[in-house]
Simulated assay, not measured.
Amino acid sequence: MAERILGTRHGPVGVTTAGDGPTVLLLHGFLLSRDMWAPQLATLAGAGFRGVAVDLLGFGDSAPARAGGEIPLHHHAESALDVLDALDVDRFAALGYSMGGQVALEIADRAGPRLSHLLLSDTFAGLDTPDVRVGRLALADRLEAEGTVAYGEEFLPAVLGPTTVATRPAVCDAARAMIAAAPPSGAAAALRGRAGRRDLTAVAGAFEGAACVVVGAEDVFDGGVLGAGLAAALGTVDLHVLPSTGHSPSLETPDLFDALLLALLRDG
Rank of each mutant, 00 (worst) to 15 (best):
A2H: 04
G19H: 05
D35E: 10
T253N: 07
T253Q: 10
L256Q: 05
A181I: 05
A175Y: 03
G101Q: 14
L242T: 00
G7I: 00
A189E: 13
G135N: 08
G205Y: 10
A18Q: 12
E78Q: 13
H240C: 00
Q102I: 09
A80E: 04
G11K: 10
A210G: 13
A53M: 03
V15Q: 05
A188L: 11
R197A: 14
E218N: 12
S33D: 09
S121C: 15
F49A: 02
A181Q: 07
L26T: 01
R197M: 09
H76M: 09
T23F: 02
R110G: 09
A18P: 01
A42M: 03
G196S: 11
W37S: 00
G11I: 01
A181Y: 12
R50T: 14
D238S: 05
T17F: 00
A175S: 09
A104W: 13
R194G: 13
P183N: 05
E146L: 09
I179M: 09
L226T: 02
D131C: 02
H28E: 14
A259H: 04
L87C: 12
L234D: 00
L264H: 02
A190M: 13
L264T: 01
V213D: 04
G19V: 04
A263F: 01
V165A: 11
P184F: 06
G152I: 07
P64I: 08
E154A: 10
